[in-house]
Amino acid sequence: MTMSDAATTETRDELVTLTRRLVSIPSHEDETACGDAIESWLREETDADVTRDDHGNVLARKGTGTSLALVGHHDVVPPDESQVEDSGEFVVEERDGRLYGRGTADMKGAVAASMLAFRDAAPAGELVFASFVGEETGGEGARGAIADGFAPDYAIVGEGSTNYSGADVTDVAVAHKGRRASTVVAHGSAAHASEPEAGANAVYRACDAVDVIRGLDVPEAEVFGERLSGSVVVTEIDGGSAWNVVPERCAVTVDERTVPGEYAELERVEAIEGVEWVIEQDLPPMRCDDADFADRVLDAARRVHDARGDETPAQVTKPHATDAGRLAEAGTTCVIYGPSEPGEAHTKDESVSLDVLERCYETYRVAAASWASE
């Protein structure tokens, strides 16, 4: 992998300009304007087949054969007030080799890098670009696209994988945890607190359920030698109506981090009289199911790191759920490779390293350029 100094400088300038443009567009309540910017750029800069589906996702394709997708999302979480200009646009600032602003790390920087790599690569197979809506609110865009038939064979999802194995390294994540949010509801019957035996205390039943949850085994999985451990934790409890009334209802909120193929046995709480278990949200975990693909992406990453004089990346696992989980569930073989660092996303000081953004562009381009040619 080699690029002339002039080309590298030009590409970096394009990458910074495009990232700044996307980040400046608010997309926490309505992703339309940012989707418009992505769609128009792809139509102007590429000869690809560019579409905008009914959900607002932006998709582009070029080439034929086995498909590799570069995947991201252009929605963001609500900004801190310091991240919004008086005009309503988002603040974007460059200092100390980083871009600051809502969405720089999660994940418009990676979207911009993917757009440029999609434009610049000439793959032997089919290359796909996809930027989804609604990732931050449950993956509505990915779910809609999959329901409509979006099914690339392979995908590199540009969520964060930087600084996992070491400082200033962008690794290849071969698996990530999912998240299952559920509510355990205990039902009883009300009575005056002076005669507690006349009722059935829902809080007591809920406490029995909590004891069951605390004793559950934590799910674990192994992917290509990397261990991934889940977790189960009670995060909220709400019950009772007055100090002198035996409560007739108590709800317990449970956060469960799932791993591929494994769930905690939360259904065991329903063995307690009056207790029901309700799943509120289930974001699936991801496991790469093709070691050769994971190795090819890692090889591309290592070539880029080596050419830049950076430390060597590794295959790692990731704690956060992403759209890769839904794609993998639908049959797409996925890995994750992106610039965001642990603790960087969703903060009032969110930022991304420009060097790492450029590294991601180069890795996407190298991986795509060699696609289906080996």
Rank of each mutant, 00 (worst) to 15 (best):
M3T: 15
D5N: 12
T11A: 13
V23H: 01
S27E: 08
S27L: 11
H28M: 00
T32W: 06
D36H: 13
I38R: 10
L42K: 10
E44R: 15
E45H: 15
V50Q: 11
V50C: 07
T51S: 15
G56C: 04
T64V: 14
T64I: 11
T66M: 10
G72R: 11
P79Q: 04
Q83G: 03
V92P: 00
V92M: 07
R98T: 02
R102S: 09
T104L: 04
T104H: 02
A105Y: 05
A110F: 08
V111D: 11
S114Y: 13
D120A: 13
A130N: 06
V133S: 08
G134Y: 05
G138F: 11
G141V: 04
G141K: 07
G144S: 06
A147E: 15
A147H: 08
V157W: 06
S161I: 02
T162K: 08
T162H: 06
V172G: 06
K177D: 01
K177E: 03
G178H: 05
S182H: 04
A186Q: 07
V203M: 11
L216V: 10
V218K: 12
E226G: 04
V233D: 14
V233R: 15
G239F: 07
G240L: 02
W243F: 15
N244D: 09
R249H: 01
V259W: 00
P260K: 03
E262S: 10
A264K: 05
V269F: 12
V269E: 05
E270F: 06
A271F: 02
I272P: 00
I279K: 13
L283G: 10
P285Y: 05
M286C: 10
R287C: 04
C288S: 11
D289P: 01
A300H: 02
A307C: 01
V316L: 02
H320I: 14
T322D: 04
R326T: 03
R326W: 15
T332W: 13
T333L: 09
V335P: 04
V335S: 11
G338S: 10
E341Y: 05
A345Y: 03
H346Q: 06
V356C: 14
A367Q: 04
